[in-house]
Simulated scan of single mutants.
Amino acid sequence: MLVVISLLATAYFARDVILPIVLGFLLALTLSPLSRAMLRIRIPHVVSAIALVSATGLLILAIIGGTAGTIAVWSDELPLMGAEIREKLSAMSDAVEEVRAASKEVEEFSGAEGTTPEVIIKQPGLLDSAFDTFTQIGATLVVTLVLATLLLSSGELFYRKLVQAFPTMSGKKRALATVYNIERQVSRYLLTITVINSTLGACLWLYLTALGMPNAYVWGIAAALLNFLPYIGGFIGTMLVGAFAIVHFDTLGYALLAPLGYQILTGFEGQFITPWLVGRRLSMNTVAVFLTVVIWGWLWGIPGALVAVPFLVVFKVFCENFEPLHTVGIFLSGDETAEAPEDASRPLPRQ
């Protein structure tokens, strides 16, 4: 328990250092199947690493540049949007207003008995906050991309170092087989999930465009990112799309088509596409997934919630391939029992 508390405290206070390192390793694992495929056509690891990470960085910058202006406009229009939503849902909000009025009366009654001094904390200016946020995001992005480039360009260096660290041949074979198995499963999972989420975002973009929703591409990008949050992401996306659809469409019935389509697409993806492509081998315990998202969201905010499930998959595969932690791997698995670690006597997988 002391070790767990110490790790959580370290992760909380060292977020700015640990987060880009975690993102760098996850990005390297995601791109490693592509790097190995490029090696088969005789493209060196260094060249493929620079090309893949550069393409990823340009894609991230394009997404940020394409959505930042729209999100800034939406943030300025939030009060007007809220008033319009309340007006269109006035019949449903009467009960809420009554409860709010009663709560206000209770606060005024309790405040009449005595005065409570107010402490006003001066917040930093908008320009300072924006500059700090931009600097933090930029530093995280740079460290992530540089670390991923170094990891991908190193090729088999870490595997050679691992083999040299074990004195016996059986230990070398088991360690190498375990590491290869972990790297293969996790990289395939991360790459597959990334492709699935990107396809989901593209489908939602086309659907909302057909409905006439303005800035539908922003919602496609948001859906792709939110889909990294199982269970929670689909609900958040449905509510946000529904709120903006009520603002931009004249009739409530037509506006509800947007969240309905969002829910149908995410439900079809979650029930059929992901289980079919990912398979039962990496099925997860739903309680463990939910708790992981909550804990990492509390520790690191939105970035922590987004990397929670990939991080849990990495830890689960490691436990399944490391015999002393095999019981933990079984607990983190879904309805199916986790497979036993690979036997060291089996031939090593070819990379």
Results as ranks from 00 to 15, higher is better:
109 F>N: 14
286 T>V: 11
271 Q>C: 00
4 V>M: 13
208 L>W: 05
150 L>S: 05
88 K>H: 03
291 L>Q: 08
60 I>E: 14
99 V>C: 00
185 Q>M: 04
8 L>E: 10
12 Y>L: 08
92 M>N: 06
162 L>A: 13
308 A>K: 01
127 L>K: 14
120 I>V: 15
114 G>Y: 06
30 T>S: 13
97 E>N: 12
49 A>I: 11
14 A>Y: 08
58 L>K: 00
12 Y>A: 10
148 A>N: 07
118 E>N: 05
225 L>K: 01
22 V>H: 05
170 S>E: 13
35 S>A: 09
47 V>Q: 11
90 S>L: 06
158 F>L: 13
17 V>A: 14
258 A>D: 05
5 I>C: 02
150 L>E: 02
254 Y>W: 07
228 F>Q: 04
204 L>Q: 10
184 R>Q: 08
222 A>G: 15
24 G>I: 09
30 T>W: 01
33 P>D: 07
84 E>Y: 06
66 G>L: 08
306 L>N: 03
140 T>P: 00
40 R>L: 14
154 S>R: 13
27 L>D: 03
234 G>C: 01
234 G>N: 01
272 F>M: 07
293 V>A: 02
127 L>D: 15
281 R>L: 03
179 V>M: 13
167 P>T: 14
104 K>V: 08
239 M>V: 15
252 L>F: 12
277 L>V: 06
233 G>C: 10
6 S>A: 12
288 A>E: 04
252 L>G: 02
7 L>P: 02
173 K>L: 09
88 K>W: 05
64 I>S: 02
306 L>R: 01
285 N>G: 06
217 Y>H: 09
239 M>K: 08
68 A>T: 07
310 P>S: 05
134 F>Q: 04
249 F>Y: 02
141 L>Q: 14
45 H>Q: 10
326 H>F: 00
73 V>L: 12
45 H>Y: 13
7 L>H: 04
225 L>E: 07
146 V>E: 10
185 Q>V: 07
255 A>F: 03
349 P>C: 09
170 S>N: 11
327 T>C: 00
18 I>F: 11
41 I>T: 00
66 G>K: 11
195 V>K: 00
93 S>G: 08
47 V>C: 10
221 I>C: 01
50 I>F: 15
110 S>D: 15
221 I>T: 02
293 V>K: 00
233 G>I: 03
336 E>N: 11
174 R>F: 04
298 W>R: 01
180 Y>E: 11
24 G>P: 02
